[in-house]
Design a binder for these strands. Structure first.
Lengths: 153, 153
DNA sequence: ATTAAGTGTTGGTCGTACCAACATACACAG
DNA sequence: CTGTGTATGTTGGTACGACCAACACTTAAT
């Protein structure tokens, strides 16, 4: 071994208590869990795909631009993600008869199926992610973060 | 105008209440604020640079590998970030006399100065980020996220 | 003397989030 | 009807944080 040197690995105290730092660490943990879940049960899909499938299942067919606005995903990223979903026949794209530039995207039965599977995986990850908190704390946490996120400013 | 089409922009209900989703939105907001702060007051520095300066100021000179472990930044990214810090004379690198492969990194007075400036900027961003919460809620939020983040595995 | 392990560096990848530019399609004002 | 403006889908970028593999080199352990 080469000089113990005692790396505590602890975070600089400057960061430790700062909300932005803690949120970035929480995100790291969260996206790590999600990434692992998608990797083992997701057939190469990622969060963008899940978001799009969720929007389509909930609100029905929509144009790509609409999807982009509703999911807060950039148009260009919507295009790319839909191409991947389409290649797995989880969605279908068809030209809007009333507007030949626009494409109407529809989720397929297979798409719904996969969405429901992903739901289960993601629910499991919520459990894992929130494990350190009691049920009451979980509710509190979710309420507080919701408030933070809904800030229009 | 081209067909109102009514984009509420609201999130799919599947996502709305999930902790991992909320955390990702919170992180987005947080890193947006930080990015803007660094852009206007940071002289091109980013969060990696701040982390490294903070570690150096708090724990004194360290080798790059040590820094990497203490800040949880990959060795290769430490190398790159230090090169940028060095070019601004905010840190100095010197070969460890006891180990010719190792480089000891030291923060310069200018580095400390810049760190203190960044501290102020980042403190302001905490305020902005936490604005939607009352002081009691802020303490609660920080306590809960800390607990989430300290989860070992 | 070998082997094992740590160190700094180079050169990649991935995922999320953006942005700019473009061709095409449509809506509306005149 | 004609022009102007705006929406749409697509391509091809950028940034940033996080990671990984490989390499040359140095030192420690056996």
């Amino acid at each position: 071994m080469l000089m113990p040197r005692h790396d505590t690995g602890r975070t600089p105290s400057r960061l430790e208590g700062r909300a932005t730092w803690l949120v970035s660490r929480a995100y790291l943990r969260s996206s790590g869990l999600l990434g692992a879940g998608f990797e083992t049960h997701g057939d190469g899909l990622r969060s963008y795909h899940y978001r799009l499938l969720a929007a389509l299942e909930e609100w029905g067919p929509a144009s790509q631009a609409e999807l982009g606005r509703k999911t807060a995903i950039d148009r260009s990223d919507v295009t790319a993600a839909l191409t991947e979903l389409e290649s797995r026949t989880l969605v279908e794209r068809s030209v809007d008869p009333e507007h030949k530039r626009r494409k109407i995207v529809t989720i397929t039965p297979a798409g719904v199926e996969r969405l429901l599977e992903l739901d289960k995986v993601i629910d499991g990850i919520q459990e894992e992610f929130l494990a350190p908190l009691t049920p009451a704390q979980r509710r509190q946490f979710i309420a507080l973060v919701s408030r933070l996120v809904d800030a229009q400013h």
